[in-house]
Amino acid sequence: MLFASRWLMAPFYLGLVVALVVLMVSFLGELWHFVLAAPALKETDVILGVLTLIDLSLAGNLLLIVVFSGYENFVSKLHVGDHVDRPEWMGTVDFSGLKLKLVASIVAISGIHLLKSFMNVSQMDKDDLLWLVIVHLTFVVSGLLLAWMDHISGSTKKMKLSGKAEAVS
Rank of each mutant, 00 (worst) to 15 (best):
Asp125Ile: 10
Ala104Thr: 08
Leu98Trp: 14
Thr92Arg: 15
Leu132Asp: 11
Ser117Leu: 02
Val121His: 04
Ile109Met: 14
Leu137Ser: 05
Ile106Pro: 06
Met124Val: 08
Thr138Val: 01
Lys101Glu: 06
Asp128Ala: 14
Met90Ile: 12
Gly91Ser: 00
Lys126Pro: 12
Asp125His: 15
Asp128Phe: 13
Ser122Lys: 04
Gly143His: 04
Gly97Pro: 02
Asp127Asn: 14
Val107Ser: 05
Lys126Tyr: 11
Ser142Tyr: 11
Met124Pro: 06
Thr138Pro: 01
Lys126Phe: 08
Met90Trp: 14
Ser110Phe: 13
Leu129Pro: 12
Val141Leu: 10
Ser105Glu: 03
Val140Ser: 12
Ala108Ser: 15
Val140Pro: 01
Val121Asp: 09
Glu88Val: 14
Arg86Asp: 03
Lys126Val: 07
Ser110Cys: 12
Ser117Pro: 07
His136Met: 05
Ser110Gly: 15
Phe139Cys: 06
Ile134Ala: 14
Ser117Met: 02
Trp89Ser: 08
Ala104Tyr: 00
Lys116Gln: 11
Leu100Gln: 14
Trp89Tyr: 11
Ile112Glu: 05
Gly97Tyr: 11
Val103Glu: 09
Asp128Gly: 10
Leu100Lys: 14
Thr138Lys: 00
Val93Thr: 14
Leu132His: 15
Leu130Glu: 11
Thr92Pro: 04
Leu144Arg: 15
Asp94Gly: 10
Val121Ala: 11
Asp127Gly: 02
Ser117Cys: 05
Ser142Phe: 13
Ile112Pro: 08
Asp127Ser: 06
Arg86Phe: 03
Asp127Arg: 07
Leu132Ile: 13
Val140Ile: 11
Ser110Pro: 09
Val93Trp: 11
Leu98Ala: 06
Val103Pro: 02
Phe139Trp: 07
Asp128Met: 15
Val93His: 03
Val93Pro: 02
